[in-house]
């Protein structure tokens, strides 16, 4: 694997680290199985692409994309807590609706951003093309900031209330926490992060495409699960760190699999590889536990 393709894998991995942090909030912390991601990721991309193509500031585009994502997550939570629609079903409804909405926003199935200013443009040298290095670097800074902000938030009074809402809603209510409001806010935060990832994704890929959201949730979940396998989730800052590392490792493994010519895998096998990797990550902790038990039995 060349250096360029390694950096490319890191770049996508960093973007999906944001998705994974969003998935961590919904699936793990709020205990809310949320498939909105497949709609909110392209929603962020669509909003950002339209704004950037319209000549607006790329950072502003990212901010508005995140707000749009927050609205989508809030809507999913609202369908669940106010109308009582099953969590998974509520998120599927929003995801499906977003496909049409995204087409409306974009006005076409794809928008090209080639040559337009992005958040990366100010850092990229015009003399020698260093985008392959600069883009992952800028993304790394964004991911680190997002991780640290989330860590601080989850250690705050409101953040702790959000974690209690997912862990034990009855106890949370007994402590005066409105679990409905916490679910609404947490789902908004989760999908804001995912939409921000979508906004950054279109800027690295040079355009938005209506089908760019397919499988987002699986990749996000894969990263969370791989992260949990890597590091024991003792404290929350370790959990967020593991999630980010999980996203990076996932993309590296994908890149390796695709680059290893002798295996004969090609780009169209991506989803198959994803499924196999997630399956492995799910089974690995169990195998580890079994091995440990065996060793324990021998020494005893």
């Amino acid at each position: 694997m060349s250096l360029i393709s390694l950096m490319g894998a890191l770049e996508i991995g960093l973007i999906f680290a944001l998705v994974a942090l969003g998935v961590l909030i919904s699936f793990r912390l709020l205990n809310f199985p949320d498939l909105t991601a497949d709609g909110s990721f392209p929603l962020g991309g669509a909003v950002a692409a339209v704004l950037i193509a319209g000549g607006h500031d790329p950072w502003l585009a990212c901010g508005l994309a995140a707000i749009a994502g927050a609205a989508a997550g809030w809507l999913t939570a609202w369908l669940n807590v106010r109308l009582g629609i099953l969590q998974l079903l509520a998120s599927i409804l929003v995801m499906i609706a977003l496909y049409s909405i995204n087409l409306r926003i974009m006005g076409a199935p794809n928008i090209a951003l080639i040559g337009l200013p992005t958040v990366f443009t100010p850092f990229i040298s015009t003399v020698n093309d260093n985008a392959w290095l600069i883009q992952p670097a800028v993304l790394a800074v964004i991911v680190v900031i997002a991780k640290l902000l989330l860590d601080a938030f989850f250690a705050s009074e409101t953040g702790l209330a959000l974690r209690a809402t997912g862990a034990n809603p009855r106890m949370a209510r007994a402590q005066g926490i409105s679990t409905d409001r916490m679910t609404l806010a947490g789902m908004a935060l989760s999908n804001a992060l995912i939409a921000l990832a979508g906004a950054l994704y279109v800027q690295t890929q040079g355009g938005a495409d209506i089908s760019m959201g397919i499988g987002t949730i699986v990749v996000g979940l894969a990263a969370v699960i791989i992260g949990e396998t890597l590091l024991p989730p003792r404290t929350l800052w370790l959990v967020t760190l593991a999630t980010v590392l999980g996203a990076l490792l996932y993309r590296l493994l994908i890149a390796l699999a695709l680059n290893a010519d002798f295996i004969g895998l090609q780009a169209q096998d991506l989803n198959l590889i994803t499924a196999v990797l997630v399956g492995l990550a799910l089974v690995l902790p169990k195998i580890k536990g079994k091995l440990r038990n065996k060793q324990g039995g021998k020494s005893a």
Binding site: S156, T158, A161, Q175, G176, I177
Partner: peptide, 22 residues
């Protein structure tokens, strides 16, 4: 959650919850 986090949750019962450290 840890023991101290559980106690901190109870410490805010009936109080507003902000963004200061729990």
């Amino acid at each position: 959650l840890t023991i101290e986090e559980n106690l901190a949750l109870a410490m805010q019962r009936g109080q507003g919850r902000g963004l200061s450290r729990a």
